[in-house]
Amino acid sequence: MIGVIVFPGSNCDHDCYHVMKHVMGAPVRFVWHKERELPAGTEAVVLPGGFSYGDYLRTGAIARLSAVMGAVERFAKKGGPVIGICNGFQILVESGLLPGALLRNSGLKFICRDVFLRVENSSTPFTNKLRPGQVLRMPIAHGEGNYFLDAAGLKSLNENNQVVFRYSSQEGAVTPEDNPNGSLENIAGIVNRQGNVLGMMPHPERCAEAILGNTDGRLLFESLLAWLSGNFEKPGARASGSFR
């Protein structure tokens, strides 16, 4: 079962739930932020986009203190797959589950549009149906997605192959022109060192159905379900419990 965390102010929670349940046909549950434990049988966790706690103070800064985040951290440390999308990514960096910070977009404005992403790492629970170098089209919608990390951290991020997606051209070239928000090295999504916690600014749940004109995002959810059902063997830790 996949748990979608609902913070006050989450607004992509219904979208993530919809994709999991009605598009992918997977069992899914909402998990309220005041819960101290994840529901029994949770196999993966989604931190959805939105404006948790209004994003007052700083994006993700208050959400990371909510009761449920303790349980999410324990789940992640045991190797459970966690994906944070947009505000979810911001919460993951605030909570320290992922390195770095997400600053205001370099253009200082909220941006909602499609971007292209080059896949850098396809050996995660969320990207095993992709191949390195593959280019995906996916929408972004954020005011604070400008990824930043200190030089030492960035070096280690690259050495450990923790960058999963970079903003690119349609052909896969990673250039400043294709960087929508000023992110360091066009970084759009990263995983933790163990590879089980993914944070990304683009919204795969917004491009997983033909009627929306784009199904590239579906590949991430297919990857996760394959990984959970054991069709993909990942070295190292993996969440317990069977799926389906």
Binding site: H18, F110, C112
Partner: peptide, 26 residues
């Protein structure tokens, strides 16, 4: 309209800039 989130709720079938906006009713 790029400053407006026009896709949240994953219903937007025809994006802004067209004759009419179109959403699906899930």
């Amino acid at each position: 309209w790029r400053q407006y989130d026009h896709m949240v709720r994953t219903n937007t079938v025809v994006l802004p800039g067209s004759d009419a906006a179109v959403i699906r009713v899930k």
